[in-house]
């Protein structure tokens, strides 16, 4: 019984020692809006629709992204071919629906979509999250 008592006492002492030891360790707090932590290159942030140097979409309107999207994130892709063979694409994404799984980015045959490191897009207006290119 007494050995139990001393074991308990020792443990109480050790516990307090451990807690005190933490007081001298590095802080983990990150003062968020002022300081932000770096995210890696693999980060799955906001999805950007890539344009080439002539400000033209890389997208060819194949619709594969819509097919692999699990949650209606890709709403609509309209493809129009003009008489001179020029392609017009209207690409509509809804970021409120998107779960940022990355299926569309990985399966795009033209690499026309890419992830950015941006992750703060809270807004009051839901329609702002609907992106049309």
């Amino acid at each position: 019984m007494f050995s139990d008592f001393f074991k308990g006492l020792k443990s109480l002492f050790n516990g307090h020692k451990t807690v005190m030891k933490q007081a001298f360790q590095k802080r983990v707090t990150l003062e968020y809006p002022e300081k932000k932590r770096d995210v890696s290159d693999n980060f799955r942030g906001r999805i950007e629709i890539v344009k080439d140097e002539n400000d033209k979409l890389l997208c060819i309107g194949c619709g594969l992204c819509k097919k692999v999207c699990p949650c209606n994130g890709v709403i609509n892709i309209e493809k129009q071919t003009e008489e001179n063979g020029k392609l017009h694409i209207r690409y509509e994404r809804d970021e409120a629906q998107c779960i940022y799984c990355g299926n569309c980015v990985e399966n795009c045959p033209q690499k026309a979509l890419k992830f950015t490191k941006e992750y703060e897009f809270a807004t009051d207006v839901k329609s702002e999250l609907r992106k049309i290119v």
């Binding site: 074991k7 308990g8 020792k10 443990s11 109480l12 050790n14 516990g15 020692k17 451990t18 030891k21």
Partner: peptide, 14 residues
């Protein structure tokens, strides 16, 4: 080990 030092033999936790 740190977690255990706080908890494993602690009489209140027991």
């Amino acid at each position: 080990k740190e977690y255990e030092s706080i908890l494993t033999d602690n009489p209140i936790f027991l």
